[in-house]
Simulated scan of single mutants.
Amino acid sequence: MTSTELPARAATGPTLTPGRRRRDGASTVFVCVLWACLLVAALFLLYVLLTIVVSGISRLDANLLTQAPSTIRPSTAGVQPAIVGTLLVVGVTALIALPLGIAAAIYLEEYADPQRWFNRAIELNVQNLAAVPSIIFGILVLAFVVRAPLNLGAVALSGSIALALLILPVVIIATRESLRAVPREIRDGSLAVGATRWQTVWRQLLPAAVPGIATGSILALSRAVGEAAPLILVGATTFITFTPDGLFSRYTVMPVQIFNFALQSREAFVPLTYAAILLLIVILLALNGTAIMLRNRFARRW
C-alpha cells in the first residue's frame, strides 16, 4: 500500500447502509416521542400545581396551622390536630422502621450466607414486599394489632406500625444498595489491619454509606407522610377536633383530613381543602430537600 492511498482512504467516512439509516430514524422518532410524553406529563403536573396554589393560597394562614377542623366555621378552621397526628405517627414510624431496616440490611449484606435457604427466603420476601399495595399492610395491622391478639385499638401506635411495615422493605433495599456502593478496598483494608467485621461495618462502611441511607430513609418517610389507605383501616378516619396527646389516643393525619374536607359539600370547604393539600406538598418538599442536603453534605466528607 502506497503512502498516497492512505489519505484517500482516511478521508472516506463510514458509509450509511439502509439498515443503519432505518435504525437512526427509529431512534430519532423514539426520542421525540419520549420528550413529547415528558412534556405532556409536565404540563399536567404544572396545571395541577397551579390549581392548588391559586385555589388554596388564600387559606394558607395562621388559622390553618393553629385551629382545629370545624364544620360550623370553615372560614377559620385549620388542621392543627392532623399536623400533630402526622408528626406523631411518622416520628414513631421512623423509630420503628429505621433501626430495624438498617440492622436487617447490614445482616443480609455483610453477615448472611446467601447459600442458606433461610437467607434466600428473607431476601425474596423483602423484594416482594416492596411492591405490595399499601392497603395490604393496613389489613394486616387491622387483623393482628388493632384487633386480637394485640388488641391495641384504633390508636396512633397502630398507625405507626402500619406505616413502619410499609416502608421497612424500602429502607432495607436502600441501605443494602448504599453498602454495596462502598468500594471493596475499604472493607479489605480495614480487615487487613486487624479490625473485626463489626468494627469494619460500624467505623468504615456505615459512615461511607450514610448519604445513600439518609436519602433512602427520608424518601421512605416522605411516602409514609402521604399515605392514607393503610391508616383509614386502622382508625384515622374520624373527624378529630382535638390534638392527640399520646400513642394510645385517637388521631388523624393530613391525607385523611384532606379526604374528610373533600367530602364536605359546602363551597367554603373548597379553599380549605386546597390549602391543606398545599401544606402537605410543602411538608413533602421540605423532607425531600432535607434528603438532598444530607446526601450532599456527607458525600463531600467521603
Rank of each mutant, 00 (worst) to 15 (best):
I136Q: 04
Q204I: 07
F144R: 06
C37L: 15
I283A: 12
A131W: 04
Y47I: 07
R180G: 15
R180Y: 02
Q264G: 02
A209M: 13
V33R: 06
R297G: 08
L129H: 09
L168M: 10
G289F: 04
G194L: 11
D188K: 14
E267V: 06
R22S: 07
P207V: 06
A276E: 03
G159Q: 00
T12M: 11
S75V: 09
L287E: 12
V170W: 08
R223G: 14
L50R: 04
N260I: 00
L49Y: 01
G226N: 10
L263N: 03
F44P: 05
G226S: 09
D24H: 11
S3F: 13
S158D: 08
R295Q: 09
S265K: 04
P7K: 13
L168E: 05
Q257A: 06
T2N: 15
V31D: 09
V193K: 05
L49T: 03
V53S: 01
V170M: 15
D24S: 08
A148R: 14
Y274V: 01
A286N: 05
A11D: 15
L43V: 12
T290Y: 05
D61F: 03
V170R: 14
V145S: 13
R297N: 07
A181P: 14
L179I: 11
L45S: 08
V132F: 10
T86S: 13
A148M: 07
V92H: 02
Y107E: 15
L65M: 13
R73S: 05
F261V: 08
A42S: 12
S27V: 14
G19S: 12
W202R: 15
R9C: 10
A291K: 00
A209I: 06
P230C: 05
L294F: 09
E5Y: 13
E123C: 15
T28D: 14
S178L: 11
V31N: 06
R197P: 01
A291M: 00
T237Y: 08
F298P: 09
L231K: 06
V31A: 11
L64R: 00
L280I: 09
R116H: 14
V48K: 07
D24N: 08
R22W: 04
L157K: 02
N288D: 14
L60S: 10
S55V: 00
N260S: 04
L219D: 01
S3I: 11
Y107S: 11
L98V: 11
T93W: 03
